[in-house]
Design a binder for these strands. Sequence first.
DNA 1: CTCCCGAATGATAGCGCTACCATAAGAGCG
DNA 2: CGCTCTTATGGTAGCGCTATCATTCGGGAG
Lengths: 354, 354
Amino acid sequence: MAIPIHKPSRRSRGSITIEDVAREAGVSAMTVSRVINKERNVREETRKSVLETIERLNYSPNTAARNLAAGEATHIGLLYSNPSAAYLSQFLVGALEAARKSGSHLVIEPCESEDEVEQGEVGRRFANAEAEGVILPPPLSESVPILTELALANTPVVTVAMGKLHPNALNVRIDDYAAAKEMTEYLIGLGHRRIALITGNPHHIAATERQRGFRAAMEGAGLPTNEAVEQGFFTYRSGLDAAEKLLNRKVPPTAIFASNDDMAAAVVSVAHRRGLDVPGDLTVVGFDDTSPATTLWPELTTIRQPVSAMAAAALELLLADLRHRRSGSGGLSQEMVLDHELVIRESSGPPKKP
Amino acid sequence: MAIPIHKPSRRSRGSITIEDVAREAGVSAMTVSRVINKERNVREETRKSVLETIERLNYSPNTAARNLAAGEATHIGLLYSNPSAAYLSQFLVGALEAARKSGSHLVIEPCESEDEVEQGEVGRRFANAEAEGVILPPPLSESVPILTELALANTPVVTVAMGKLHPNALNVRIDDYAAAKEMTEYLIGLGHRRIALITGNPHHIAATERQRGFRAAMEGAGLPTNEAVEQGFFTYRSGLDAAEKLLNRKVPPTAIFASNDDMAAAVVSVAHRRGLDVPGDLTVVGFDDTSPATTLWPELTTIRQPVSAMAAAALELLLADLRHRRSGSGGLSQEMVLDHELVIRESSGPPKKP
DNA sequence: CTCCCGAATGATAGCGCTACCATAAGAGCG
DNA sequence: CGCTCTTATGGTAGCGCTATCATTCGGGAG
């Protein structure tokens, strides 16, 4: 009797399939599929054996086939406007990785101006079954027109931002309040007493949260805050202006906490122009850990956001929501807060002895 | 006799399939497939009719099914080290878009240090059938260890870089020589005579090409070049040093052409520290059009590379090569040169009248 | 001891598309 | 007019996976 030989058809890639695993593990393909998809109703023993075989054969499921069979070649929209390029690239890296793992596709679309939004461009692009869900990184995550547009189209959305504007949405963020507080406490710990904050655009919740954190830390240490704040708008240019004002004061601060790295870079520039050494004469710290932080000299002490991880989390949250919706239950509403990190570099130090 | 009713199975997404198009156009699915894939041996008339139907039904093929059937769920590796984040994000955007269109997947991997390369890490990761081809953006595109490693593994590679190191490879680039020449001629046209170049890392072919272009333009205008060049290394720090040297000269230049934007930013910083106005007292121009170019103030005149387009081109070139290989013919060897663009902003102007 | 029920597993039939071969319809030729 | 040869098209069989339903099996209720 002829023993059936496993002859790969000429179309096959010759790679390991679920069948191979099934045969090897002595179960059916279906069972392997169940194990892969973490379904219940598989005996623990069987699961272990299958997982072991998968490991041994170095099997990895074919996403194309999976999507085809499951009928959910999910397309996730990623709308970006003009965050710092550094932010975007990290964000993309994270989202991409998560997309690949989940077998979903990222449809990225630039969104140049708010005009486009108002003309319904965005909605049209995505309503057109282009994407089943949308990820909104900042600053788009706070754009009310876009949010309402997408809400009208009943498209699930994850925002990656500080404030949760939409009660019904998914959100991923860091704790800006805590981060700013931590940074301020670090500066106080270095011995600084005259610490100034350059705030960000007041329309961004992130900016106000950072300011709240700053105030909390200052007040906690019994330091005055009424004179300590200068308005900025997250741009280099606004940082320049704010720094000039701060350093023109009769009693200038010994440390300046800019609400983002671009403005911190501007502060460094102004300080240098005035012959001040950083951090010798003035400590400058930023927020975000974007490219200016390490491109410049001295490198900036700043707060790092886990941007890639946030993007990945956003994607996964969205996929979970989509599954939930598909299974009949409504969308879920969830918020996820990831950890930030204080990164100490060369732009901060103790104040000069008077 | 019962007329067969088109009842969508409950698994189907209800979206338009190739069958729908075929039925509507009165041909077989195969013919539609041929039209989609631009195969020959389809009568012009038939092709038109099918295309029209596709248009009318707003049909778009299901990539998952395509990949599954064609057996080419191609995974393309994208190895990145540490280019400017701005560069990376643009690059990713372009590559992603192209990947989605082609139905291939991007597997992006960071490559932190050259150590990793030497330990064969990279080869292992990609030889492991993780990726069938690899895209190498700068500066990795000039890393000999990586290139040889991948060549040994017989993995097709596209480099995105200035010099074509590997005779057998695919390459996408801009014409650095012409771009630098153009920029220099622009400066000369403004009336500058004492123009200095801060070169980039001499190991990068891009740097030497840019220098060649600069020299050609200067000599073309009968201007001396022997004193005009200062060594840099593409870093902010090296730009700082080079700028100091240039501005310390007895007869300092009226325009400084930095070989990338980071160094140009450094030059601006040094100029400001010395109380020089840009562009009033000193014209500063960069190269690349990365984020410092527009973050800083004044915004930099620079050369824009079509980074996204280059990434897309790289991916397509690679896919073409893979198809070519699969069909039995060897890999193809090809170079693609895209257009750059001189972007005039605020950091350049005519020299001060003496 | 039978009967029923749920848990574990298997068999089957596609998902939407393309490789591969079969077929049909001309085209050219002796 | 029969024959080969090309060119346009169709039929069929999967690609690797999962939804769905069928089957098996152990065990507690009656």
